[in-house]
Design a protein around this nucleic acid. Structure first.
Lengths: 250, 250
DNA sequence: TCCGTAAAGTTGGGACTCCAGCTTGGCGCC
DNA sequence: GGCGCCAAGCTGGAGTCCCAACTTTACGGA
């Protein structure tokens, strides 16, 4: 701790990251862990440049990112302040099915989206356990989805949730529908997208030539209800683009 | 046309707006109206400064905003390009109920959210007809919701949808759930939030003192699935904040 | 004590510059 | 014709400076 390359406020941030991200990470941490309470003032641009030893550009960009994340709010002539009770829960959600049919090329082409699923009991791996805040090897339900656009497999996804949540579910549904029925019980859901770039091993499942650019997903932590995902779906001969949202930091 | 205060690329943009927004508006217009096709290169920073007579800061900020909107994508070392089939449909959705229970104060306080609804046949007003792309006076279903946080009314909402979509719906549900079942048929949904600031007339429905700051909503056009809404819910004695998303431009 | 004004501080917009790392295209060599 | 290499161009990060408009604070006069 405290070596010259990693001052305390750089914790959890790689030294190769842009400096503005280190400032963001430090302030975000203070807000999340309660060091900075709602309404508390954030250091001004000038103060940030001095405190973190960065330029004004980095300081401004950091404030802009934090404001875009909804953690702080800027008031002209006054300063930046922590927003009242900022929402920042790690909440993973994957809602491709809900969004595919709306305003995408699939729709323009009169395509229909359907999906198949298969739920199965499983034990939480360390990673899953951590995300769901369960003990390791706790019973979970793993559901595999195959989403189809106009009959053709478009995407594979897998979701995990605590087994107790699935007990009353007669049939798995895509997340948005499930969330509303599960209501307040859900705090976290993990979904993993299998078809990545390049992952030829999965290609035969998608009935595509191996090595094709199938699906690119940038999965990011959700802060509350803020989606930060963008993905491309490329099927040979066709090209779809889903805009879930936009990256927060350009 | 062509007066010095309003060159063609400034159409629809007030001359008092920041210059970077005028650049954004001009490029956005070209993308939306098809002048710039998917894959087409966007002028580089240097070219933008010359073309629009702005500084590099404005040019960069404009590109950043367009990228954040999902309309263009930047490739390091290459340039910015129009994204494949950018989604830019006016899609109004109001999903407060889906989101209230997740990661908000309501949840932290162990509150439960419930809602009541009442659906009724109606005729499309000109505005509704336009949004739903129906003829005037076409049959629609109007559904009124009362959302409750921990038993207390929190929000009123009204949604409209083509009557044919409601035929198979046994009971109205909040939007996210309905969208998935309605699938590709839905192109547009309009919801209106009634409790605004200040609208004392509605206060008695919410069982609040008249004139209290009930609900502030900034409703914005959705571009595809990108939410751009923030709202406060203030119940006397309590204070909640929902972060649906974040404003795109700081 | 109260009020009005002036000064200091802060945000958001903007211009200009520099640089590392990446992509692209063209040129020359084989 | 094909290949490799280099230069040019571009993005993203970063620094510095300036300004208008706004808020807050402190001071001094009534």
């Amino acid at each position: 701790m405290g070596n010259p390359e990693n001052p305390p406020w750089m914790a959890h941030v790689a030294s190769s990251d842009p400096v503005y991200l280190r400032v963001v990470a430090d302030i975000r941490r203070q807000i999340v862990d309660g060091s900075l309470l709602p309404g508390a003032p954030i250091p001004s641009r000038a103060q940030l440049t001095r405190k973190y030893g960065v330029g004004e550009t980095a300081a401004r960009h950091a404030l802009r990112v934090l404001a875009a994340e909804g953690l702080i709010v800027g008031r002209v002539g006054s300063g930046h302040y922590v927003r009242a009770k900022p929402v920042l829960l790690p909440l993973y959600r994957w809602r491709s099915h809900d969004h595919v049919p709306l305003g995408t090329d699939l729709q323009a082409q009169g395509a229909r989206t359907t999906w198949d699923w298969r739920a199965e009991p499983a034990e939480a791996t360390p990673d899953i356990a951590h995300r769901l805040r369960l003990d390791e090897s706790a019973p979970v339900t793993r559901t595999r989805y195959v989403f189809r656009g106009d009959g053709r497999p478009v995407q594979l996804a897998t979701s995990y949730e605590p087994a107790e949540f699935s007990a009353t579910e007669e049939a798995p549904r895509p997340l948005a529908g499930r969330l509303s029925s599960l209501g307040v019980k859900i705090t976290e859901v993990v979904e993993e997208v299998y078809a990545r770039v390049p992952q030829p091993a999965e290609s035969d499942v998608l009935a595509l030539p191996a090595g094709v650019h199938v699906l690119h997903v940038e999965r990011t932590q959700w802060a509350g209800d803020r989606p930060v995902e963008t993905s491309d779906i490329v099927i040979p001969g066709d090209r779809f683009r889903l805009v879930y949202s936009h990256p927060l930091h350009p």
